[in-house]
């Protein structure tokens, strides 16, 4: 099914169910799909598992979704930041579950989900707290940890430009988790700064091919 251009962000996030696993792009605020998260807050889905590199900054975006009490669990690499007071408070109050995953393992588990890989052995974290309870194997003299894919029900990502096929181009380090998350969820929703006619993006420069993308919404300010 080719991508649908949505009227607005509310239209783009329609139908997210309670209990969904939501992949949220961004590294800090770069590439954070703020308009889609704001729309998800209005949409009302709760009991969510959020997969993202961080656990919200300041009081907007992911932090606002957390503050609304809509997130049951966060899977991320780096929740603790100077401005992550919303998450910190909820975590210390026992109101949100946390699974900390090494950043590269998080990216690779998402990639594996999108690529149909059942599980993979990874040397990162072997012999550390984060490997406790996980199957390990020595391969070529090096200890590896068995890691499973992370599949999303929905991915919310931010890109720079989309065409009518849903082909995406990102900008600078705002690309970060977007391309892997776009492959790893059942429904992939993208906010972009600009939409162009099909054929207007040089096929050689497409980063995320439209096959992965379900819904696109143009957001004026990339807010």
């Amino acid at each position: 099914m080719t991508a649908r251009l949505c009227a607005d962000a509310d239209d783009a996030v329609a139908g997210v169910r309670d209990g969904s696993t939501v992949l949220v792009g961004g590294f800090g605020m770069a590439g954070m799909p703020v308009a889609l998260i704001d729309a998800l807050i209005r949409q009302g889905a709760k009991d969510l598992t959020v997969v993202s590199n961080n656990a919200g900054n300041g009081d907007t975006g992911l932090a606002a979704l957390l503050a609304e009490g809509r997130v049951r669990k966060v899977i991320c690499s780096f929740p603790r930041q100077a401005d992550s007071w919303v998450f910190d408070g909820l975590y210390r109050a026992g109101k949100v579950e946390l699974e900390v995953v090494p950043q590269g393992t998080l990216a690779e588990r998402l990639r594996a989900a999108g690529a149909g890989i059942g599980a993979f052995f990874c040397p990162t974290g072997a012999g550390t707290l984060l490997a406790e309870g996980k199957e390990t194997r020595e391969i070529n003299g090096r200890l590896h940890v068995l890691e499973y894919p992370i599949n999303g029900d929905v991915a919310l990502i931010s890109a720079h430009r989309a065409d009518g096929m849903g082909n995406l181009v990102y900008r600078k380090t705002a690309r970060n988790f977007g391309p892997v998350m776009a492959t790893a969820a059942t429904t992939v929703v993208v906010q972009v700064r600009e939409t162009v006619e099909t054929g207007a993006i040089d096929p050689e420069t497409v980063v995320t091919p439209g096959i992965y993308v379900d819904r696109v919404v143009k957001v004026a300010d990339h807010a």
Binding site: S77, F78, P79, R80, Q81, D88, Y91, R92, L98, V100, V101, P102, Q103, G104, T105, P123, T124, G125, A126, T128, L129, L130
Partner: peptide, 16 residues
């Protein structure tokens, strides 16, 4: 005990 664990890319860098 009260520290919020946060690893980021440290483990990947250490072994990579």
């Amino acid at each position: 005990p009260d520290a919020i664990p946060a690893v980021g890319g440290a483990m990947d860098l250490a072994i990579g």
